[in-house]
Design a protein around this nucleic acid. Structure first.
Ligand SMILES: [Mn+2]
Ligand SMILES: [Mn+2]
Ligand SMILES: [Zn+2]
Ligand SMILES: [Zn+2]
Lengths: 139, 139
DNA sequence: TTTGTAAATTAAAAACATTCTATTTTACTA
DNA sequence: TAGTAAAATAGAATGTTTTTAATTTACAAA
């Protein structure tokens, strides 16, 4: 399906490079919502000359073009997702161990959206809702 | 009400210092959910010798003792809140302009909690729920 | 009230993810 | 195939937060 990617990149006005293909294909195959560094660790095994800068630049570009999504976490380390189907991310865990679950349930998404929209007069799009839950702290 | 603070600090096994009182009183008076730096900027006008390290250390201590809450944001800059009444934080805006709104509405909180609990078998406590919403990006 | 000591503050350095800058390399167009 | 704009690279810089090591302070005990 390299041809599909070529079309996608061209449509978005992007050149198709080895690095971009590797990053996007990895993101499309995985369900783990990896961080920039996780992506770098994976990709650099096959392409040892790639740099972390390139991974960051590429991810930023893909996010800006709407090809992937950036998932913020309370740990301050962003995660990435190539699944564009509307779903909510439940971000859990602590700084050292972030866990992300997908919520595809339409009812829940709609409920949250309606509540937010009604209370705050916000036009919120599914992709931009994050429900972040911290683990309990000891007092 | 300096006496109340003395009691609070003693109960928690903390020494009462000028810095801790200044930080906690500021947090208790404001409704703005300030960052460490915002707190530092405010406090250092009255106590010019305080350092940002002390602000961070103090906030960490107060959070660990359950005296205040730490609010994560997608901007990677944490905010702080001395309001312990159960409420959900709606974090909006972009990196340069984070806006935080409080949701006290019991029904919404209960709804979100129930949904999360049912779907994921999680015992979630009101204080630890964050609904984070990013502003739409241009494609 | 004074003294002793552990706890807290301070200044500075380090850590960490991320962004930026300047140079080299590459993809695509003509 | 050559020319050029875009992208990749290496490394420095940034901004928030944490850590370290030295100094100062709060407060319990005498
Ligand atoms: Mn790594
Ligand atoms: Mn400042
Ligand atoms: Zn996802
Ligand atoms: Zn609040």
């Amino acid at each position: 399906m390299e041809k599909d990617l070529k079309k996608l990149f061209t449509e978005k006005g992007l050149k198709m490079t080895i690095q971009r293909v590797a990053i996007l294909e990895y993101l499309m195959k995985t369900k783990t919502h990896p961080s920039a560094d996780m992506i770098y660790e994976h990709i650099s095994k096959k392409y040892p000359t790639i740099t972390l800068s390139t991974v960051y630049n590429t991810l930023e570009t893909l996010v800006n073009k709407g090809i992937i999504k950036k998932i913020p976490t309370f740990a301050g380390i962003s995660r990435y997702d190539a699944d564009l189907e509307p779903h909510v991310h439940l971000v859990m865990g602590d700084d050292k161990n972030v866990k992300i679950k997908d919520i595809y349930d339409k009812e829940i998404i709609q409920q949250i959206r309606t509540e937010v929209a009604n209370k705050f007069n916000l036009d919120v799009d599914d992709n931009n809702i994050y429900l972040i839950i911290e683990e309990k702290r000891q007092q």
